[in-house]
């Protein structure tokens, strides 16, 4: 199985990657530290999983070279599971990219990273309801401290592609 870590710049993809694989890639507290992808492997539920740390991108319409690498990566790995890493305190923006990936037919797991920061900012996210609407596993994580990382690895297998119409149907409000 192959897993791609995708998300906006500076949401902590590389930190998740380090936690997963024990391979150390360099992380910093500014956007754009990872401009090329790095690959590592881990064992999840007794299976060998290849993890790829993809450079940060805001959407699937690339605007700079690092983003091009990200989109190419996604297009090359047709059967990969994507972990969409999202800054929980800016969840709306993260969901945009997540939906784009879902629409392309990839099985997606949503990692609500920087969960501690979001809570600190007074943000409350109903994780179960979110998972229900999207039809994908949703895991709150704080990668820096390692919180939620094991859970994230354990739900990888349950990720399935979903149709965006079904999501739209399940979401409330006007259709």
């Amino acid at each position: 199985m192959k897993v791609l870590l995708m998300g906006h710049p500076n949401v902590g993809k590389s930190v998740v990657f380090n936690r997963f694989t024990g391979v150390d890639v360099i992380t910093s507290n500014y956007p754009g530290t990872t401009v090329e992808y790095s690959e590592g492997s881990m064992r999840a539920e007794g299976e060998e999983v290849t993890v790829i740390d993809v450079p940060g991108t805001f959407s699937l319409e690339p605007k700079d070279k690092a983003e091009e690498v990200a989109v190419e990566m996604l297009e090359k790995e047709k059967d990969a599971v994507v972990i969409s890493v999202v800054d929980a305190s800016k969840i709306e923006r993260g969901l945009y990219l997540t939906l784009e990936i879902i629409e392309r037919g990839y099985p997606v797991v949503l990692a609500l990273n920087m969960w501690d920061m979001a809570k600190h900012k007074g943000l409350n996210i109903d994780v179960n309801r979110l998972s229900e609407i999207l039809g994908i596993p949703v895991v709150p994580t704080t990668a820096v401290s390692g919180e939620g990382i094991n859970k994230l690895a354990s739900v990888l297998k349950s990720a399935r592609p979903v149709e965006v119409e079904t999501i739209s149907g399940r979401a409330g409000g006007r259709a």
């Binding site: 969901l95 007074g122 979110l130 119409e165």
Partner: peptide
């Protein structure tokens, strides 16, 4: 199928209205 940009934002809006609540934000040092 894929959505247009506006449709996508609209969907996100509906999702977040159902799942995200903003509590009181206490500024720290």
């Amino acid at each position: 199928m894929s959505l247009t940009v506006d449709e996508r934002w609209d969907l996100i809006d509906r999702i977040s209205r159902e799942t995200v609540t903003v509590g009181e934000y206490k500024e720290t040092l």
